[in-house]
Amino acid sequence: MRTDESAFGRRLMDAVPHVVLILGVLIFAFPIYITLIGSTWDAGTIARGNLPLTPGGEMLDNYARAWNETRGDRIIHTPVRIMMMNSLIMALVIALGKIAISIISAYAVAFFRFPLRMVFFWMIFITLMLPVEVRIIPTYEVVANMGLIDTYAGLTIPLIASATATLLFRQFFLTIPDELVEAAKIDGAGALRFFVDVVLPLSRTNIAALFVILFIYGWNQYLWPLLVTNSGDMETVVIGITKMIGNGEAATDWDLIMATTVLAMLPPVAVVVLMQRWFVKGLVDSEK
């Protein structure tokens, strides 16, 4: 029965990609699953190291305490609702701020000719090469001297200039046909009117894509908020988790920490999954 044998062999070969891909999916899902489970048990069960692989009964209690209270059994923390609000404000201001200042500066560079145009362009361009981490200490000093420590302004504005977004918008603007601009001029639209009536609506997809990427960038900031926030009221949730963990002894409020971790993951993961189409396009386009 040779034919059966080779058919079986072929089916086996067809299965290999699925096996590998499912394995990949599991490797990415497993840590999340464990954390989800952990957030439904009490601290004692987790600390003993015998976390079951099925949900426990403490879920509502854990999340409620993490969300509202400042005091666990062993640790003191900023309530997650405050940290989440801080993270949300930071992510939104960074994402929307970057989009706003990038789109208008790209419009200036693409649609006008004026002295020093290329100087400005290159000045924006070289910021590509200076991630915040590289210039962290002097930037911190500038912000400290301006009295912006523990403020939303200090948390967000230094991260708001974006060469990537400016280049992406400029690239897109260069594809808007000249005739469209001329038609608008003949229709009587000036530069600002053209921007509002034509350029902004045409940029919707790009704006959506950038919003996803920049929201995640903002939400996930670590070193910068670590430096410029001291008071608990200004803490972001990503920083908050590691502060709650401290040195990571066995006997700590793991239940609260895991609930907080789940909450911290929710907004960015939701944004990526819900806006997957724009996000993938935007990510790939913005790096061209």
Binding site: E179, I186, A189
Partner: peptide, 30 residues
Amino acid sequence: LEPKDRDIAMVFQNYALYPHMSVFDNMAYG
């Protein structure tokens, strides 16, 4: 004079319609 003040209208080779506006809005924009 600016194009808008010359009292002319122009038809372009590649149509130059506003892609995000309806036919009505394209005609009404000016």
